[in-house]
């Protein structure tokens, strides 16, 4: 008996994996099929490629200071000009993409993992665990994210890693709430009862059966949180409490550029333009994913 049951779950599992694959592929196709979605994906991929290939694409060493070439206007040697220390701005902007994407990625992975796990726990078991953790996330939500960044910088000191930690913490509550809301709906459905009757353990039910059905809204949140983290990393670095010089973060560059707006306006323009390209890309991906994964949802 046990053996037959076992093999049945095996085939069910196989089928499930198969359908999950096609779910991902189908979702990606539906995102790319929308003009704005395709545009967003292209922008995001472009910035990602530049970040990955920065050492090969950059015309100069982003940290090398060319003596006597300070604040040079864009020309053929320095396509975007140079900064106040004679460093090539284009190379620095290219390397800046690495900081933006890695801080954004790290914080979203951290916030997503903690948030989803906590949401699964509190949605499935409810009770006091639910009450305590959700109140905890509520109080994180009570801090506008910039303030979380300020608090973490005050406690741990300003650095790129600490910004990622702060943004990770700030993004937990949304993931937790979304997951919990889906679990509350899913756990009363028949397939959960069926799995329980087949003798599936609680962790198995939660992770194997319920979780896959909560993924859609989380994917949208992933893109939203990523855009948010990229924006805030730049904002906190601009305030001087994120990445520290000489690191080439877009926010840090803009913060320095503020002092040279009269002599070198391009210095204040290009790092921000790069940031806008990435943000628009991520925002369009998020919008398209929202439409693709839930066509009934109104488009705000």
């Amino acid at each position: 008996m046990a053996a037959t049951l076992g093999s049945k779950t095996q085939t069910l599992k196989a089928r499930r994996t198969q359908s999950t694959d096609s779910f991902w592929l189908a979702a990606a196709k539906r995102v790319v099929r929308q003009p704005l979605g395709l545009f967003g994906v292209s922008l995001t991929l472009m910035v990602t490629l530049v970040a990955l290939l920065a050492p090969y694409l950059a015309p100069h060493d982003p940290f090398f200071q060319y003596q006597g070439q300070e604040l040079v206007a864009p020309n053929s040697v320095y396509p975007l000009g140079t900064d106040e220390m004679g460093r090539d701005l284009l190379s620095r902007v290219m390397f800046g993409a690495r900081i933006s994407l890695s801080v954004g990625g790290a914080s979203v992975v951290m916030g997503g993992l903690v948030g989803v796990l906590s949401g699964l726990l509190s949605g499935y078991w409810e009770g006091w665990v639910d009450a305590v953790t959700m109140r905890l996330w509520d109080s994180v939500l009570a801090f506008p994210p910039v303030l979380v960044g300020i608090a973490v910088a005050a406690l741990l000191g300003p650095s790129t890693t600490n910004v990622a930690i702060a943004l990770g913490i700030a993004s937990i509550p949304q993931f937790a709430r979304l997951t919990r809301a889906s679990v509350l709906v899913e756990k009363h459905k028949e397939y959960v009862t069926a799995a329980r009757c087949l003798g599936a353990s609680n962790p198995r039910i939660v992770l194997r059966h319920i979780f896959p059905n909560t993924v859609s809204p989380l994917l949208v949140q992933l893109a939203v949180a990523m855009a948010f983290a990229v924006l805030l990393e730049a904002g906190l670095s601009f305030l001087g409490i994120g990445s520290q010089p000489p690191e080439a973060s877009w926010g840090t560059m803009l913060s320095t550029a503020r002092r040279f707006l009269v002599e070198a306006p391009w210095y204040g323009v290009f790092p921000g333009l790069a940031l806008v390209v990435l943000l628009l890309g991520l925002n369009f991906v998020a919008d398209a994913a929202r439409t693709a994964l839930d066509p009934h949802r109104r488009q705000y």
Partner: peptide, 29 residues
Amino acid sequence: NAIALGVPNFWLGLILIIVFALVLRWLPP
């Protein structure tokens, strides 16, 4: 609206300073 949501406010501020305070000289930076 989509563009407004994608443009970080601190960068928008810098651009506004460049255009309206430094180039056109209408307002203080």
